[in-house]
């Protein structure tokens, strides 16, 4: 049963990841990535990381992908996006990596790799509570630094995307250019 569930999630994740790269229309790519995020959240649930599954859905699927869709539709992305001539470079990078991976996994002890420890964590143990305790005791300083990173990113995004306010007369012109 567990293997069936893992096979479903892994299959959907792999197929939608390839669709993200293969589809030409950016809107379809973003929607395919959305399906992938949902299934990654399901995989987290099977790994007993319920808090991360919720965060994955809220932050990734809720916030980040909406931002992507917003920009894709704002910029009116063309569909005639063909692939790069760099596919040879991609082959040189990825085929050796893939072969290396296969050799590693074939040579490794696939069967004797120990399975996960049995579920001694019953339904009483709260994943979110445990993460909160760890986050606010051991990782308190990185947590504060993360808030600083978010602040810097927020200010940086506003400054980068802000329209130049050099001359008042240019604003109307740039408004026209921005709208598709």
């Amino acid at each position: 049963m567990a293997q069936l569930v893992f096979g479903y999630f892994a299959g959907v994740i792999a197929v939608t990841a390839m669709l993200v790269v293969a589809l030409k229309n950016p809107v379809y790519s973003v929607l395919s990535l959305l399906i992938m995020f949902f299934h990654v959240a399901g995989l987290y649930v099977t790994l007993h990381a319920e808090f991360l599954a919720a965060v994955q859905l809220i932050v990734y699927a809720g916030a980040i992908l909406v931002l992507y869709l917003f920009v894709v539709m704002l910029l009116n992305a063309k569909q005639d996006d063909r692939y790069h001539r760099q596919w040879r470079a991609a082959g040189f990078v990825c085929v050796p990596l893939l072969l290396e991976l296969l050799v590693l996994f074939a040579g490794g002890k696939m069967e004797s790799s120990p399975p996960f420890p049995a579920d001694q964590a019953g339904p009483g143990v709260d994943n979110a509570k445990a993460i909160g305790m760890t986050l606010f005791s051991t990782y308190l300083f990185p947590f504060e630094v993360a808030s600083l990173i978010l602040l810097v990113a927020m200010v940086g995004a506003i400054v980068l995307a802000k329209r130049d306010t050099g001359g008042g007369g240019h604003d109307a012109h740039k408004d026209n250019r921005l709208s598709p």
Binding site: A14, A17, M18, V20, V21, P26, S29, Y68, V71, V72, L75, A77, D81, R82, Y83, H84, Q86, W87, A89, A90, V93, C94, L97, L98, L101
Partner: peptide
């Protein structure tokens, strides 16, 4: 991860 590497190398659309 390899799918992502291939996507970075062969796509021409910055959003992709």
């Amino acid at each position: 991860f390899l799918t992502g590497v291939i996507g970075v190398l062969i796509r021409r659309n910055i959003i992709a």
